[in-house]
Write a protein that binds this DNA or RNA. Structure first.
Lengths: 142, 142
DNA sequence: CAAAAAGAAACTGACTCTGTTACATAATGC
DNA sequence: GCATTATGTAACAGAGTCAGTTTCTTTTTG
């Protein structure tokens, strides 16, 4: 499979949708990994990021597992995106442009302005969809 | 430098802004590379993608170089983005999810719907800015 | 205390990307 | 014609990213 970027957001939505579907039953990373079709450690890495963002909570031990930390109606896809892709800022130049050139000296500030606006528009769309809506859509398709 | 994604879009805007600033004078990849602070071959790769999209045109030989193929007013940042980042679709799962699970069976179609909407919103912002506006902004800051 | 689960560290293989070298192709001016 | 200059392109290396895996520790239950 040729995937350009990382698939953490896709897995994170999948994981939280599972938790929302099974609530209030906690799910183990091994069981979740069976649906996502990956390794339990990969799932735990995603769950760890989601927990840091306050979206899920996990407990250890023989009856342990993970559950949503908030109602699915109060979790948006933007929350999930920020939890697992927080430092994915759009890339500028690898090397700083030539400051002796008028274009090189100022291009990055212009680029940052427009990229920030574009990213904000993308995030605004993600903010309009709640996890509850995703869970509902999955129920309807199933 | 820790850059998450590729910097082709940033370089492409830089290159076309240079061409717009210097028009109608053609620019060599070596001279452009001096402003971008990279290797001429890197610039030529970007120029090649931009030429395929009909945004620039290059000529060889001792008086050769590259120029914009259209007026800067008629080139948007979306044109440039599509020229150099055409196949950068948001990533889904690496492995297909488990089709025996109701969530796994349908999560990707739901994800594609919302990701497409988010990507469209981002592109709409890029479409609102023309290369001429970028060149003008650079002139004002210089 | 045994079993079961998360948490975390370390490593691997595949892939991406920039930068680089080398060479072929084409156009200009003498 | 021919040297010069520039693009076009292929091939490769080094750094970095990422999913997947193994291994071990920590925590909780019964």
């Amino acid at each position: 499979m040729l995937m350009t970027r990382n698939c953490r957001f896709a897995v994170a939505v999948h994981v939280t949708a599972l938790l929302g579907t099974m609530a209030p039953q906690p799910c183990t990373s091994e069981w979740i990994a069976g649906s996502v079709n990956t390794n339990p450690v990969v799932v735990r890495r995603i769950l760890s990021a989601l927990a840091k963002a306050g979206l899920v909570s996990s407990t250890r031990g023989s009856t342990g597992g993970s559950i949503l930390a908030k109602a699915a109606e109060r979790i948006t896809l933007l929350d999930i995106h920020r939890a697992v892709a927080e430092d994915e800022t759009p890339a500028l130049h690898n090397q700083p442009p030539n400051p002796a050139c008028p274009v090189g000296r100022n291009i990055q500030s212009v680029l940052i302005r427009v990229m920030d606006r574009a990213e904000a528009a993308k995030e605004a769309v993600l903010a309009t969809t709640t996890l509850a809506e995703v869970v509902g859509a999955l129920r309807n398709e199933a």
